[in-house]
Design a binder for these strands. Sequence first.
DNA 1: CATGAATGAGAATTCATTCAT
DNA 2: AATGAATGAATTCTCATTCAT
Lengths: 198, 198, 198, 198
Amino acid sequence: MSESHDQKKEKIIKAAGIVFSQKGFHQAKMDEIAERAQVAKGTLYYNYASKSKLFAATVTQGLNQIMDAIEDKLESDLPFLEHFHGIVSTTIRLYVTNGEVTRIWANEMSSGIDDEVLVEIRTVRKKFNTFIEDRLKYGQEKGYLRPLPPRLSGMAIIGIIDALCSHYLENPDQDTIEEVIETVFTILSAGLALTKIP
Amino acid sequence: MSESHDQKKEKIIKAAGIVFSQKGFHQAKMDEIAERAQVAKGTLYYNYASKSKLFAATVTQGLNQIMDAIEDKLESDLPFLEHFHGIVSTTIRLYVTNGEVTRIWANEMSSGIDDEVLVEIRTVRKKFNTFIEDRLKYGQEKGYLRPLPPRLSGMAIIGIIDALCSHYLENPDQDTIEEVIETVFTILSAGLALTKIP
Amino acid sequence: MSESHDQKKEKIIKAAGIVFSQKGFHQAKMDEIAERAQVAKGTLYYNYASKSKLFAATVTQGLNQIMDAIEDKLESDLPFLEHFHGIVSTTIRLYVTNGEVTRIWANEMSSGIDDEVLVEIRTVRKKFNTFIEDRLKYGQEKGYLRPLPPRLSGMAIIGIIDALCSHYLENPDQDTIEEVIETVFTILSAGLALTKIP
Amino acid sequence: MSESHDQKKEKIIKAAGIVFSQKGFHQAKMDEIAERAQVAKGTLYYNYASKSKLFAATVTQGLNQIMDAIEDKLESDLPFLEHFHGIVSTTIRLYVTNGEVTRIWANEMSSGIDDEVLVEIRTVRKKFNTFIEDRLKYGQEKGYLRPLPPRLSGMAIIGIIDALCSHYLENPDQDTIEEVIETVFTILSAGLALTKIP
DNA sequence: CATGAATGAGAATTCATTCAT
DNA sequence: AATGAATGAATTCTCATTCAT
């Protein structure tokens, strides 16, 4: 009983995620993705029309996973700070474990990718940004957070998480994942939140 | 009286800085650098042995400029927070104007660059990290800053600045440079500093 | 009651004829033929061992159709010129409507086709050439036609028809099919025939 | 003293002409052209941006050569038929010797070539067609030629020459070039010209 | 010192063909 | 009999690097 079609597509996306996040779009080689997914290079193209399209699929799936996980967290009914801690913790863990894809963020996003695909990726990215911004606006309205520009604050959150997770992935032995989470949480909660909050 | 040797090298570094920061290491083309520097491609190789070496020279010079500028600021004798504000402001302005090179930071740093050169770049980078960490340790010893892991805090600072500056460079019309500076300063000072400080 | 085996083969040949004549052998894609024939790609290979074999079958059938039609015409008992007019007219009409296959004539006939199949196609082609030449020899013996080398005259006939029909197929609105027929007939009858003929 | 830049471009065009006319556009391989021109593959791309552009350059140059040669012939002051004989003879000789490129005529002209380049080629082709048509119109006005549609007559001329020259190139031993010329001339002069001409 | 034509290793992509179901 | 997912050899094109002038 050999693996199903969907299993093979999944295997490809997984391999692509690893390679793209390690090398970035342009430096990732279809040969390496194929080898890592244990399929022939042609199979990549049978399932995804081009490198760009495969990239888009990989990024989209990674970000959607993170957003889904955060939304699950959000449904829990906790005091704001604990809530926030949960979100930070969840995001970082997902980022580090399965979703290294998110690293493909500000960079590599411009030249050499089909316009069509570029638009798709920018859309998901914008969706993720908006998602973060909405949480921040909500916190500001409730009086939990400082009145800073939500877009810039959102970028700051992403920037911190991105930098520390990248560093952690490159040097997994220098710090523990808990230290990373606590550092991010401390800086962001103190940096963004007002003093008196539940 | 044609231009001197050093003027030509300077022209090349300047062109390289622009192209590398716009495209990243792998997407930057020697052809484009040569054209922008208004020299023949051979001249690039006459002055710098390889693309990697040119990249190293570019990054090194960019970071050293920033470090020099920050050190100038540090010599001024101001209260800590104003001091800190000055550093943030200086870094961001340099980053945005001439030193976009810093963007080549977490990314592009892995495959495809000669090991020898990679070591050189990592050295400058580490020097810059250490530079930031030292400032943070000093602040912690004086009791100005929270006792967070200096290395991780340093990465967080770089991460925030990198994310917001990249965003600003891509969308110069959405926010002013002052807004960027104030947001970064607010988050970082509140996020890193203790309450009672001079 | 699903369609019979022969019906399926017929559908494939028909689709192949269209695609081969539009694109030529090398630019025709098995994928497109399969899609146009509304069968799976595997079915193509189930019925014809290779692209070359399918091509051979397509060309053979197309030329045989034209030859049959001309032979029907030949049996009619008309004065030579009217006879000739009928042949030209029939050939052009067949060429333009169903048998665009003939366009694959001087070209595409060389590299990239299995030798075995190449021989087959050359055989049919030669058969067609001979068929034309025989008509010309007959006309010369009867004293109707100038004593030109029959092989070269035959190629000339095919060349004229091919050029005008190709042009007509590409620009169907510039001229009518009747104009094409009359031009070909006038040039060929005056060019090949002697003055005093029935 | 090694060869000049222009000599190398010329060598490439010459090699390309041979390969393109033997194989057609799509079946011609850049590898083979490079090998035949005794340059590296990269040199092809250094001089011509793409396969399509090289093709366009080859066709353009070939047709222009033929047109120049015919125009030289036209300046001579001979009776019409001798004039015509000279043109036919010149065209065929050029076609067969240096300008095999012309074979790339009705075929291969559609799919898989950049639109930009396609337009260029169509332009030269049209120029050549017009060139022939103009000669025919002149002959008709003078009363030398039958009143047939000039465009279709032009295509017929090209079709005959194309077919016979292709055949001659493939089977150089079956007929002499003189036989080819005489056959073409006889058919065309009788087919196109009126009886009483100087 | 400077140049830019030439190179060739390397990468993305295509597509006829196979074969397990 | 029929299918269509999987394959990999073959091909176009890129670009850092070299070197003769």
